[in-house]
Amino acid sequence: MSERDSGGSGRAKAAPRSQAAFGAFVRKPVERAKTTGHALEAAASDAAMRVETVESWPDDAVEVGAVVDAYGLKGWVKVAAHADAGRGGDALLSAKRWWLMKGHERSSAPALQAKIHSDSIVAHLGGTADRDAALALRGTRVFICRSDFPALEADEFYWVDLLGLDVVNVAGVALGKVADMIDNGAHSVLRIEYPATGKDGKPVTGERLIPFVGVYVKTVDQAAKQIVVDWEADY
Rank of each mutant, 00 (worst) to 15 (best):
A81T: 02
H82V: 06
R97I: 15
M101G: 09
L100K: 03
L112S: 11
S107Y: 03
A111M: 05
G75K: 01
W76L: 08
L125C: 13
H124S: 12
K115A: 14
S94G: 05
L93I: 11
G88E: 10
D84C: 08
L93V: 12
A80E: 10
S118Q: 12
A111Y: 01
V122K: 00
W99C: 15
G88F: 02
L92R: 00
D132V: 11
H117W: 15
D130C: 06
D84Y: 01
G86L: 04
K102H: 06
G103C: 14
S94C: 11
A123S: 06
R106Q: 09
E105P: 03
I116M: 10
G86Q: 03
P110M: 12
K115T: 15
S107A: 15
W99I: 15
G88N: 10
R97E: 10
A91Y: 01
A111C: 13
K115V: 14
S107I: 06
G89T: 11
A123F: 05
H104W: 11
L112M: 13
H104C: 12
G75M: 06
A114F: 04
W98P: 03
A95L: 02
G88T: 12
L92I: 06
L112F: 07
A123V: 09
A129T: 11
K78F: 11
V77G: 04
R131T: 10
L125P: 03
I121T: 08
A85V: 11
W98L: 15
M101C: 09
A111I: 08
W98Y: 10
M101F: 05
A129Y: 05
V79L: 03
S120R: 02
D132Q: 05
S94Y: 00
S118K: 15
D130P: 02
M101N: 09
S107E: 01
T128A: 15
G89D: 01
Q113C: 14
D119E: 09
P110Y: 03
R87H: 12
A129R: 05
A109G: 07
S108Q: 12
W98E: 04
K102N: 09
D90T: 15
K96G: 09
D90C: 13
A85M: 07
G86D: 06
Q113V: 15
G89K: 01
A95N: 02
D130H: 12
I116Y: 00
L112I: 14
L73N: 07
A81F: 00
S120C: 09
K102Q: 10
R87F: 08
D132L: 05
A111K: 00
L93F: 13
K78Y: 06
V122H: 03
W76D: 04
H104M: 14
A85L: 11
V77I: 10
A114P: 04
S120N: 08
G88W: 02
S94T: 07
R131G: 10
R131Q: 09
S107K: 07
R131W: 04
H117R: 10
G88I: 07
G75Q: 03
E105A: 15
R97A: 14
A81L: 04
Q113H: 11
A95F: 04
S107L: 09
G126N: 13
V122A: 11
V77W: 03
Q113W: 09
A111R: 00
S118H: 13
S108V: 12
